[in-house]
Simulated assay, not measured.
Amino acid sequence: MKKKWLKGLLPFGVIAFGMAGMTAITATAQKAEEDAVVDTRPKVSVEAISAQNYQVVITAYGEVEPLESTSLSAQVSGEVVSWHPNFVPGGLIKRGETLFSIEKDTYQAALYSAQATLSQAKAALIEEQARADAAKEEAKQIPAARVTDLYLRKPQLLTAQANVKSAEAQLKIAQRDLDNCEVKAPYDALVVSRSLGVGQFVSTGAQVAQLYNVEYAEITLPIAGFDTAFLPDEVTGVRANVVSKGIQTIRRDGVIARDLGVVDTATRMGQVVARVADPYGLKTGAPKLKFGSFAEVNFIGKTLENVFKLPQELVTNQTVWVVDGEQKLEPRNVAVLREEGQFYLVSDGLQNNDRIVTTLPEYPQKGMEVKLEDGTEPTASL
């Protein structure tokens, strides 16, 4: 009877034991979940920054132009007998080379005539000087009251001297006219146009060619208002890098020649002028920087002290996010001094070793706790 009772009770015991086990397991799991702390802080990456002295580079653009342009005219009239092989549009001619020649016979004859006139005048002066010397000796033998300037032949002597000077002047003019029969390049020149040929008669003052000076090129550069404050105190003499982009990029060294000293009334911009020596490489063999081409000019401006250089994407509405010592987000208002390419130069609002957030949470808030990508945690203060 007792065994039967035990057999009837056994199923109930197994069920009770199972329920107790399930209860214990559930309670243990709940306790484990309660004990595990879920970290919901957003993860960010940071970068420590330091102030630096930054050399501003100013970039401006302009058209390459000749230092000077000359409308060449003949100074004497006559028939053209020859011209330089490079005296054609696009030709390059060095300073002092003969561009073209005018028939010289008339001017050579005028020179001979002037030389003869001068010789006669000098002979007359010698003769008159001798007469004056003789009169001076004779004057010693007569009373002083009878000695006059006319007696001493002073007027005649002055006339003879004046005739010599006049003859010398005529000789210089004749020599100049003869020299001007050879029309020479006033500087290293690019021939833009020419309007004469062999056998053509040219008149004095007639324009025969257009020349550009290729000893120097100049580029007038408009300077925007936001760049004006960063110009060096003395801009004249500052080295410049000139770049002309195209099928082939041309790079040449230059210098800032001068500040024009005015503000353009249309654009409200200042203007400086960059100068490049030997733009056509006539002396140096450097790549040609052709007139009329568009060029970019870079030159050094002022040095900004203790500024922070930040990527533009980290600055929004003059605000930068940093992580403070308690691992919390903090917005900083900053003063942007200048834009340099993809960066901003910031003067105020940051300190050395500030940790700039480079990857922000989707909705950043002031005081939001964050964790760092490298796993660094704040050190508890003592």
Rank of each mutant, 00 (worst) to 15 (best):
V202A: 13
V14W: 12
A257V: 02
Y54C: 02
E373Y: 15
L221T: 04
A257R: 06
I247M: 13
N213Q: 08
D264V: 02
A217N: 06
G341L: 01
L337P: 00
G375K: 04
P311H: 08
V183L: 10
N353Q: 08
I300D: 09
P66C: 07
W321P: 08
P85N: 08
N352H: 02
E218W: 11
L360V: 04
T319H: 05
L289Q: 01
E168D: 05
G62L: 05
T28Q: 15
N53A: 05
Y54M: 01
L152C: 00
K104H: 12
L111E: 06
L372R: 09
L125R: 01
K288H: 12
L125W: 00
M19G: 15
A114R: 02
T70S: 11
Q30P: 09
P89Y: 07
T98M: 05
Q327T: 15
T26G: 15
M22Y: 15
Q351C: 07
D354F: 00
A277E: 12
R239I: 10
A16T: 14
A229L: 12
K290P: 13
T70P: 09
I126V: 03
P311D: 03
R355P: 06
G375C: 07
P42T: 04
G78C: 07
L125E: 01
Q318T: 13
K172N: 15
V272W: 12
S244W: 02
E138V: 02
P42N: 05
K43V: 12
V297C: 01
R258M: 08
V273R: 09
F299L: 13
K328P: 11
G301T: 07
G205C: 04
D348S: 14
V320R: 01
T303V: 10
D354G: 00
I256P: 06
Q170D: 15
G341Q: 00
T148V: 07
T319N: 11
V346Y: 05
A286Y: 04
P222R: 05
T379N: 05
K7N: 06
V44N: 06
G237D: 13
A295K: 02
S195L: 04
T59Q: 15
K7F: 13
V80M: 13
L157C: 00
Q351S: 10
L221I: 03
L67W: 14
A20N: 10
V64N: 08
V164M: 00
A229N: 10
D177N: 14
Q207Y: 11
G270T: 12
V357M: 08
A209W: 04
E103H: 07
S119T: 11
R268L: 07
R194E: 03
Q120Y: 05
F291E: 07
Q351P: 01
Q312P: 07
V192P: 02
S45Q: 09
A123G: 06
L310H: 00
T117N: 10
E373F: 14
E313R: 13
V37N: 11
P66L: 11
K245N: 11
T376L: 11
L9R: 13
K140A: 01
G254P: 06
S119A: 15
L282R: 03
R95I: 14
Q210F: 10
A27Q: 11
V202C: 09
S203T: 08
T98Y: 07
